[in-house]
Structure formats: C-alpha cells, structure tokens
Design a protein around this nucleic acid. Structure first.
Lengths: 115, 115
DNA sequence: GCCTGATACATAATACTCTTATGCATAAGA
DNA sequence: TCTTATGCATAAGAGTATTATGTATCAGGC
C-alpha cells in the first residue's frame, strides 16, 4: 500500500467530497488512483488521500447519483472511471460555494487577512 | 437549551479547538457561554457551538495544560472562566498558522482566487 | 405568582467520517 | 526476483461532533 497520511489531519474532515467532486469537475473522467495523485500534486504533497477514505466516498456518491462509472480493462488491470452526473455538477457548485463561505467566516473568526 | 446547529456542519470538524483558542487569545479571560455567543457574533450567526462539543473540548484542553480555569460565583450562578496558559499561547499560533496553510492548499485545489 | 426564554454548567448515547490495517492482483524497474 | 508502483476493495477502530438529557438561576411578560 502506498503512503497515506497528511499534515493537518483533522481539518480535512468534511472536505473530501468537495475535493473529489471539484477535481472531477475540472478534469472530467478520472479513476480513483488518478484522483489521489492529482490531489497530491495540486496540494504539493500535503494532502494524501487514503484509499480507505476515497473508495467508500466514491461508492457513496455513486449511490447518491452524483457520479456515474465506467469500468475499463487496461491489459489485465481493471480501472473504474468516474464522471459527474448532472446532479453531481450542481452539487459541486454548491459545495465549493459553501466552502468559500466557510473560509470567509473562519478568516473573520481567526482574524486572518487572506479573505 | 439554546439552539444548536450550523450551516456547513461537517466543515467545522477539527476547527473547534482552533476557534476557541484563538477567541481566548484575542479576548482574554472568558467563560463557556460567552465563547458560544462571541463565535455566533463573529460568524454572523452561521456558527453555533453546541454545548456537547464545547464543554468536553474545554475540559480536554484544560487537562492538556492549554487552558487554566477560575471559578467565580455570580450571585448564585457559577461561572468558569478560561484563560490561555503559556503552552496554550504557543499552540494557538501553531494552529492558526496550520489553518492558514490549509486554506491556501484548499484554495489551490478548489481553484478559488481568495488566497 | 407563573411561565417562558436566556443564562450556565455538565454528561451520555449516537452518528458520522476518516485512519489504520488488511486483502487481492498486475506491471515495471532494479 | 524482489521491491515499488498501480489499482481496486472492505473491515475494525478511533476521534469528533450532534442530539438528547439533566440541573439550576435569572429576567421579563402577563
């Protein structure tokens, strides 16, 4: 298994879905492992999604109709590609907006000048 | 009991300690109920700390030596004032710095222009 | 005088989400 | 051939917050 921890561990709680959905919105069709790598890159190695967190979340969002899948055989290896459904696309927007609002609120609370 | 929910519920996970410590750092001696009200004000009513979350956290941080307490009788009512210890003061700084870094990373991931 | 809502503390049961651990299997490189 | 990377998946456990409950004082309206 590949390495799987992160710096500010608990802060990530509740952001996993938002991250995954947004990555899919920006990049289109992707498979699980690819998502972990992209998140790792975009976060300069600070966010390393664990498989135990990612796969159940993907399954859950698929069950909720936010994602649809397509299984492809690469040689003898299985890849499961995920794409946003129409519902998924509107949920991403909500989630990102919600997170932006959250950041703004936190900036006020913590007296940060960022926002 | 007073009202106790919040908009973007799960995002708050992991930020409670940071919020409480920072509020105490900025305002000095405060008691539990006062903290909930201040957070409510500073967040424009979007963050309503629940007692079931706040008090255990305060107790935990006291046990960890980040906070010290002083119990005062107001008439016949008990108030428990919390103040940062020296350890608490350095931990706040770390936590706030950590959160700022987290926001920056998330901004990159979510393609936000805030940071 | 009584009731409601705000003030003020506290803890227990429950739910949720993620971490850690484990399992299986193929492919590439040293 | 052995380790690392790729690629999926699930289960046990930990951690943190929500919801519910309990106790009690105080102020204001009727």
């Amino acid at each position: 298994m590949y390495q799987a921890t992160m710096h500010s561990s608990e802060l990530l709680k509740g952001t996993l879905q938002t991250i995954v959905l947004k990555i899919l919105a920006d990049h289109g069709k992707m498979y699980g492992y690819e998502i972990t790598q992209r998140v790792k890159d975009l976060s300069d190695g600070t966010i390393l999604l664990t498989e135990g967190a990612l796969y159940p979340t993907l399954h859950k969002m698929e069950a909720e109709g936010l994602l649809k899948t397509e299984t492809v055989l690469m040689g003898k290896r299985v890849r499961k590609y995920y794409t946003l459904t129409r519902d998924g696309k509107s949920v991403v927007q909500e989630k990102v907006r919600e997170f932006a609002a959250f950041m703004k609120t936190m900036s006020a609370l913590l007296n940060l000048q960022t926002a």
